[in-house]
Computed example of a mutant assay.
Amino acid sequence: MPDYVGSVLLLLCALQVKHLFADFFLQTPKMLSGRCAYVHAGRAQHAGVHVIGSAIVFLLFGAPVTFILVLGLLEWVVHFHIDFGKARFSERKKLNPQQAMFWQAMGSDQALHQLTYIAMAWAWVKYAAM
């Protein structure tokens, strides 16, 4: 296996761990309440937690600061809108954890985040990896 493949797999694993903590352990009540409103400071903060975590990961992988700043801005925008889409859909459908559609929305949200990490790993290989 080429060395860069191992590095990409490690990067994706690090982003997975970051995602676990940012999405499931570090959310505050402010981040979780009122999420169906587009202008939502809690969602902005939540997306910021993701960006900080990703910045740490990419620093550990030797990415240049300019790359991290650009990628961070893009990740913030994408994460904010993925979460808004799920919140708005869930609110409109009045979903709760006892409904299959709640879990379908949750799974779709998580899949979109994972696809974002694949795109971020691609960008790292193309623009930042040594």
Rank of each mutant, 00 (worst) to 15 (best):
A100P: 02
G48T: 03
H113C: 04
I118T: 07
Q114D: 02
L74C: 13
H79K: 07
A119D: 01
L10P: 00
G72T: 00
T28H: 08
V49I: 15
H19C: 01
I56P: 01
R92G: 05
R92C: 10
S90W: 05
P64A: 03
D109I: 10
P97S: 07
G42D: 10
H113I: 12
L74M: 12
I82R: 06
P29Q: 04
H79F: 05
H81F: 14
D83P: 11
S54D: 04
G34L: 10
I56A: 13
H113T: 10
I52W: 08
M31R: 05
D23T: 06
H113A: 04
Q27C: 13
P2H: 11
A63Y: 00
G72Q: 03
F61G: 02
S7N: 10
S33Q: 15
S108M: 13
L69K: 02
M130D: 07
G72R: 01
N96E: 09
F67Q: 05
W103Q: 12
Y38F: 15
P64W: 00
A105S: 15
M101A: 14
G62W: 04
G62V: 07
Y38H: 10
V17L: 15
A14I: 02
L95F: 12
S54A: 14
H19R: 08
I118Y: 08
L15Y: 04
L11N: 03
M106D: 05
Q110S: 09
A111I: 14
G6M: 11
E91Q: 14
D83E: 12
A47Q: 06
I52M: 09
K86N: 07
G6N: 10
